[in-house]
Every structure is written in C-alpha cells, then in structure tokens.
Write a protein that binds this DNA or RNA. Structure first.
Lengths: 127, 127
DNA sequence: GTTGTTCTCAACCATTCAGTTGAACAAGGA
DNA sequence: TCCTTGTTCAACTGAATGGTTGAGAACAAC
C-alpha cells in the first residue's frame, strides 16, 4: 500500500534529528556510530531513528563487518514530491482562477492578491 | 523558527485523514462540517485535524457566520519541496558520480545500477 | 579462547497524539 | 426569547513515540 508508505515517509521527516541525519547522508554514506556522534543522545536512540528512516524507505543499510553503513535512497523523495506537487498546483490554479473571476466581476484588469473577503483568523503558524 | 514549521508540516501530512483533507481542499474551500461528512469519526476529531493543518500553515480559516470555511495555502508546499529537492538532488548526484567512478574503475563504459557491492539488508519498506 | 567494537533488541518511563463524550459559545431563524 | 446549527474547548482514554539502561549478537584482533 502506497498510502501507508507516504505516511511513514512524512512521519519520519517530521523529526528534526532524522531530517538532520538525512541531510548528512546526502553528503555521503555513514555508519550508525558516525551518525550518532554529533548528538547528545545514546547510540541506541539514533539506531532507532535510523530504523524509522529505513522502514520509510528513505535510507538503506549494508553490511561491513560489525558496521552498518547507511545510504540515502533518492527515489522515495520523488514519491513525496509528486504528492506535494499535485495539490500545490491544484491550489495554485484555483487561486489564480479565483483572482481572475474577482477581477472580472469588478471590471478590473489587475488581479488582486487578497482573494478572500472575510477577515482572516490567525490562530497559529508563527511563520 | 523555520525548522519547527517544517516539522509541523511533515507531522501534519503524516496522517492519511489529514492528507485526504488537503486533497479535498485542493478542489475547493469547504467548511469543517463539509470536510467531516465523509469520515466515520466525530466532528470534533476532524476539527482537531484541521487545527493541526492550520498550525502547520497548510490551511487558513475564514469566518462566515457560524461557519469556518477552510482554504488551502499553497505557499507552504514550496517550503517542503525546497527541502526535499535539495537532498534528493545531492543524493542523485552522488549516486551518478559513484556509478561513474565504479564504471571507470572497471574500465567499463556503461554505468551500472547496482552501486553498492555488499549485500542489501531488507528490513522494512514494503514498497 | 578472551577482549573490544559496533550495532540491535527488550523492557521501561514520560510525553504526545488521535480518538471519545459532554459542555459551551456564537450566530441565524422561529 | 428560545431553538437549532456549526464549531471549538475540556477532560479523559489507549496507543504510539522518543528517550533511557542493560543485555546480547556478530565480528575483528589479540
């Protein structure tokens, strides 16, 4: 089931430590110990993080004696990008279409940026 | 803090119900009740999901009498895409570079697909 | 064999999270 | 005014999550 994998991928990347591990693996393969070094937490904790990433298919591990070098798998990123792009584009198109409609209704030529008339509720998202 | 927002966005999309809500909002704005309709869970549960999405900045809500129409915010998707693309490209480049090196080492011309020699460990990721 | 290294597994603890029910609030309609 | 509708808040429950420590497996080196 692809849906489940997508959930695992997003969940895996929801953790800053795991995103950091991914970032470092992008620069080159590394063993569990090497990856664990920069962090304050135990090796076991990092090992768990790596397992989460591997279960999501974001990384793979090979065998080298006692070592378990981790390798970033680029393909899964495309799965994510595809999902995101689909809805981003749809939303973007709707946005532009609505702007055009609003502009036409007012006999205006320049589409406005403020597409929703009622007042906005700001309840979170300190961006 | 941008890092925290990225965590919230990924965490928000790690839930299939919330991804579904996003998908439906991509087709057009909808109230909480409308969004809750298709699901078996209570309206309160969906209201919570919507709050998570709003806190992540993925959607915004406006006021219409008692109603709270939800609107998909396309900009945040770009934040994600940017993060993903950075590491996907790095990994891809490394992958291609390694293939080239391996090919050269063997005096080969055609780059192989099997870039890691040791046996792969398959511990998860039923893709 | 014994020792040291690298990593994972198991059990546990604290926190977070997705769901529930019940109450409250805000706005429109009788 | 009272009632209904739409939504959120509060308190609770059970499951999942991120961390810990301790033990053990697998391998290299002595």
């Amino acid at each position: 089931m692809d849906d489940d994998q997508l959930s695992r991928v997003f969940a895996a990347l929801a953790d800053p430590t795991r995103r950091d591990i991914v970032a470092r693996l992008a620069a080159g393969d590394a063993t569990v110990g090497e990856l664990a070094n920069p962090y304050d937490v135990s090796i076991q904790a990092v090992s768990k993080h790596i397992k989460v990433l591997a279960d999501a298919g974001l990384i793979s591990q090979t065998k080298d004696a006692q070592r378990r070098p981790c390798h970033l798998e680029a393909e899964v990123f495309e799965l994510m990008t595809k999902w995101i792009e689909r809805y981003r584009q749809q939303a973007q198109e709707r946005y532009e279409r609505l702007d055009a409609v609003l502009a036409e209704l007012r006999g205006d030529e320049r589409p406005t940026t403020n597409h929703t008339q009622p007042e906005q509720i700001q309840q979170g998202a300190a961006s």
